[in-house]
Write a protein that binds this DNA or RNA. Structure first.
Lengths: 137, 137
DNA sequence: TCCTACGATGGACGAAATCCAAGTCAAGAA
DNA sequence: TTCTTGACTTGGATTTCGTCCATCGTAGGA
């Protein structure tokens, strides 16, 4: 059993075939899939899995901190299984490809106290944008 | 006439009453409105303006670089008229309130060459998240 | 094996945004 | 000023993404 399923089981997750397949889809490929793509890949192994179940399961994985939700543009959210390694995203403005990147330092430290307006900061996301080599042609 | 309308006119924008009202709504309040809120405020002055026109006009303003589109979460996009002053956003995880903030340095410089993967970078957006004083209450 | 509470199902629903064919009008031409 | 034309607007249909809900199924403990 994968590390992911193992961790979930330890937390009392009821392990259904549907949840197993969704977790395996995410665990298997470290790319950034939409909910619909996750559903399509899960349906290859479990043809009658419903979209509601995929949404429910993804939501739980996000709540449990196993998966990160990425809203890159105004389109479908993407799900990033690389939740245990802090990182940011680099997105191609041409084709929409997403890469995980590791900038120097912690973005949070760049926001001085007088720019925090009394907020209790919990995190910062950085999205770099540019043309990938293929799109720059 | 406002600076915004002046700039648009110089670029050959056909100035219709609908476009004028949308531009004035954005120019007047430096808050982050959704398309629906822009439509509601525009309709106060021009009751029969259609949603499609508001969406069209907002899209053109974004293309022209006069307005920035902010996709905070999976909800409606917000439109930020403060496009000529580089800034980032601080969002309350409780109530969704958005503030413009000015972090130190340029986020782009934090991404080392070996993390750029051949991309031609065009920009970086930083979203700080936390609880605002009212929600932390 | 049996129970039962938790999870899955799928169709209806809703929000946000886009599309499209038809009607309207800003602004340059005469 | 009036005319002309192509760009702009309209509103309803459509698409996309996601949630809700009543009902059915089943994982896992007793």
């Amino acid at each position: 059993m994968s590390d992911l399923l193992e961790r979930l089981r330890e937390r009392g997750w009821r392990l259904t075939s549907q949840r197993r397949v969704v977790a395996e889809v995410l665990d298997g490929e470290h790319v950034h899939l939409t909910a619909d793509e996750v559903h399509a890949r899960a349906a290859e192994r479990l043809p009658e899995i419903s979209r509601a179940t995929v949404y429910n399961t993804l939501g739980e994985l996000v709540t449990l901190g196993e998966v990160i939700e990425v809203s890159t543009d105004g389109r479908a959210k993407r799900y990033d299984p690389n939740a245990h390694h802090p990182h940011q995203h680099l997105i191609c403005t041409g084709c929409g490809a997403i890469r995980d990147v590791h900038p120097l330092g912690d973005p949070l430290t760049d926001l001085p106290a007088d720019q925090r307006f009394g907020f209790a900061l919990s995190g910062a996301e950085v999205t770099y944008r540019g043309l990938c080599p293929a799109c720059a042609g």
